[in-house]
Design a protein around this nucleic acid. Structure first.
Lengths: 220, 220
DNA sequence: TTTACAATCAAGTAATCTATTGATTGAAGT
DNA sequence: ACTTCAATCAATAGATTACTTGATTGTAAA
């Protein structure tokens, strides 16, 4: 079946879109947005069998969305570049705007937990500069270590109740985690407000911050 | 099969991505980017049977990418909003950057025809303001009528040879058509340069211009 | 070597997607 | 009412995709 150059190019684009066309692969990409990971770690986090995760990752690789490297007997996958996060953001925006189903879930589940306007990246930068807020990273420690917002405090969601003392009760907390639909940040904000503390959520998560070209700190 | 709110949302995103995951649907979207069209007109232009085109369009509608309205016995489809063009642009960018296959075709076919740097939208605006260039729209007349760049001259590609007299030979021509991979603009630039006339190509096409919020003129 | 283990590959089944065909619906015109 | 025609629906066969299982590859350590 021969086709013109335009059809061939469109088929290429379609292949990339199809690679994004499965919830498991989108979730793999969300985790890869936090930093490089081995296949087994990804499989466990997303709840897939090892073989299944491996095959999904290979589809993403064929589509040019992720890259990998071998180190000893481990193979580490990572996003091909920051542009992947931009594409995911565009997909999310479009879906939020015009897909009734997504909007319904968002209203039903997420709106309850956080009726306050999320903070934009620009706002956060301003507030940090004027020393008014604490930036709180509620992801697991290893993800924090691979990269986080400069000056952020890391308290994984599960430890938040026990470590409240580490947060100055008079400063507003701005919490973030993996991305716009990462549940951790919603839960953290709800928990803090339940204690009467001022808290809001960053509009999206770490990968979007990084893709926007803003500074990133690491712990290793 | 129950799943958390996040999985449900990701499944929604995946559905939108899958809707983009077929070359025929991408081509339908490209045509819809020029303006509203009936099902039969779309089917003919993309080379699909009526029933097949109808079904693809319905998939796009379920994904919230297009909308339609009935007028008499015709049903007209259109892009749901300008954001769809932004998503398509993001998909194109990502594919061009990281998909070897796309890059190979682009080099092999398109680079031959246009070794000159395409003109950005900003450049075009500047040059038009200083009166140095002729903006040439090489799409069919009906597409031009539904919306075009302000001040553009419409000469469909097939008529270009016969109507060369309408173009001032001393002014550079900037040609555009449906989008970044619309062949008309490439062919037009090649034909003009073969005549020894200065000509370049706008970096992408009409839908991207419109989605960028720049002014649009119509003929009806 | 042998052993261990991360990851991929290969094969098979169930589910989903694509395109065609012919029947059906809905709105105009006769 | 009847006809016409745009578009959708319904049913089907063929192709592609998803996930599982068990075998295989590649690297490191015993």
């Amino acid at each position: 079946m021969s086709m013109g150059p335009k059809q061939a190019i469109l088929a290429g684009f379609a292949g990339v879109a199809r690679a994004l066309g499965h919830a498991h692969r989108l979730e793999l990409l969300e985790h890869l947005g936090q930093g490089e990971r081995g296949v087994d770690a990804l499989a466990v986090r997303v709840g897939l069998s090892l073989a299944n995760a491996s095959q999904h990752l290979q589809q993403l690789r064929r589509a040019g969305l992720v890259a990998n490297r071998r180190d000893g007997k481990f193979i580490y996958y990572r996003l091909a570049d920051d542009g992947v996060t931009d594409l995911l953001t565009a997909l999310r925006r479009q879906s939020e705007r015009n897909l009734a189903e997504v909007d319904r879930i968002r209203r039903g589940y997420f709106a309850d937990r956080d009726s306050f306007e999320p903070v934009s990246r620009e706002d956060l930068l301003e507030r940090v500069a004027s020393g008014l807020v604490t930036v709180l990273d509620v992801r697991p420690q290893d993800e924090f270590g691979q990269g986080h917002l400069p000056g952020a405090v890391n308290i994984p969601l599960g430890e938040l109740q026990d470590r409240l003392a580490e947060l100055d009760p008079d400063r507003e907390v701005i919490a973030y985690c993996r991305g716009a639909y990462c549940v951790f940040a919603f839960e953290a904000v709800a928990a803090l407000r339940a204690q009467g503390r001022p808290a809001r959520r960053l509009v999206d998560g770490f990968p979007e911050w990084k893709a926007a070209g803003l500074p990133v700190a690491t712990s290793f």
